[in-house]
Design a protein around this nucleic acid. Structure first.
Lengths: 157, 157
DNA sequence: GTCACTCTACTCGGATACCTGGTGTCCGAGTACATCCGG
DNA sequence: CCGGATGTACTCGGACACCAGGTATCCGAGTAGAGTGAC
C-alpha cells in the first residue's frame, strides 16, 4: 500500500500556491525549481488537481496555477483522492461466494463482515484527512513564511 | 494506494483457521479449494503470516497451518501489516530541504507539518484495524457456521 | 502380538518469470504580452 | 502621440517509453505417518 511519490509534491505545491497573493499564479517550472523536482512530471500531476477542480490553470506568459477556491475549502483528502483516486485500498472480491465453501446468494444478504471492517478503517483515514484544510496548515507556520515563499518563488521568473 | 489482493485471501483464511477445532490444521491446498484460489500463491502468502508469528506451520501428512495464538490476540492490523508491511503509505522525503526554497537545517527542528498530518491519518487507520480481532469477527457470525466450515474444509482431505 | 525399520506420500519453503501501474520524458496547441507600424 | 495588427515566447495539455512491485508458478527439502517384516 503506497501512495504515489507525487502526493508529497502536490501537498507541498498546493500549500505553496496558497501563500501567493490573490490573483497571482505560479508556473509548474517555478514550483519544480522551488522543490528541485522533475518539471514535466510535476506538471502532469498538477493537471490532475485541475481536473479535480482544486486548481485552475491559465496559459500564456505570466500564466500558471492558482487555487480554484479558498484554502479553507481544500482539504488533504481532496488532494490525496485527486492524485490517487477515491477507491478503498481494500477491494472485496466476494471470495466467500466462490469455491467449495461458497455461500449461497441468500446467505449474502448482509455485506461481507471483513469488508465492512476494512471499510470502517478507510473511513477513519478519510475522516482524519478531511479534517485538515490547507488553511489549517498555513495557520501553523510563522507569519513571515508566505513573504519568504513568494520571494523565493519569484527568483526564476 | 492499493493493498495486495492476497490481503482479502489471508483475512478470510485466518478467519477460517480460527474456526478449526484446537490442535487441528488446514493445508494451503484445502484453503485454496475452499475459496477457489491459486494454491501455490496462497501458500506463499501464508508463509508471510508464519514469519510474522501469526500462524504456525507443520509439514508432512496431516500437516498444515493453525493459529499461533488465540483468536482474540490476532487483529486485522496484524494480518494487514504482515502481508503489506508496516510502512506508512505516505513517505516524507523532506522535499522542503531541497531546491530554491530549501529550508536550513536549523529551521527543520520541528517535523514536516504535512508529514505529521498524514501520519495522524495513518495512525487513525491503524487504530481502527487494531480494534478488531479475529475473535470479534467470529462473535458476529451464526453459531452454526464453524461446524459447516470444518465440514466443507475436510471435503478434500 | 509387539517392536523397529523402511518407505511413501504429503506438507511447507524459497527461487524464478510475467504483467499491470506508477515514474519519467517528450512534443504540440493555445494564449497573453510586447513590439512594431501606420495613421 | 495613439491605435491596431502582428509576432513571439511562454504556458498548459496530452501522448509515448521505462521500471519496480505485486501476481502467478514451479520444483526441492523435510517430516509424520502407514505399512511391513522380524522377533
Amino acid at each position: 500500500m503506497k501512495l504515489p511519490v507525487s502526493t508529497e509534491w502536490l501537498l507541498h505545491s498546493v500549500a505553496t500556491l496558497a501563500q501567493l497573493e490573490p490573483g497571482t499564479t505560479a508556473s509548474a517550472a517555478q514550483l519544480a525549481q522551488y522543490y528541485d523536482l522533475p518539471a514535466p512530471y510535476l506538471a502532469k500531476q498538477l493537471q490532475a488537481l485541475v481536473r479535480a477542480g482544486l486548481l485552475s490553470a491559465t496559459t500564456g506568459p505570466r500564466g500558471g496555477f492558482r487555487l480554484a477556491r479558498q484554502a479553507s475549502a481544500i482539504t488533504f483528502l481532496d488532494i490525496v483522492e485527486a492524485v490517487d483516486g477515491a477507491a478503498s485500498p481494500y477491494e472485496c472480491r466476494e471470495i466467500r461466494r466462490q469455491g467449495r465453501g461458497a455461500f449461497a446468494p441468500e446467505e449474502c444478504r448482509t455485506p461481507c463482515l471483513i469488508a465492512t471492517k476494512m471499510a470502517a478503517a478507510h473511513e477513519a483515514w478519510r475522516r482524519s484527512l478531511a479534517g485538515v484544510s490547507i488553511a489549517d496548515l498555513l495557520a501553523e507556520i510563522p507569519p513571515s513564511a508566505p513573504a519568504r515563499t513568494r520571494s523565493r518563488l519569484a527568483g526564476t521568473r
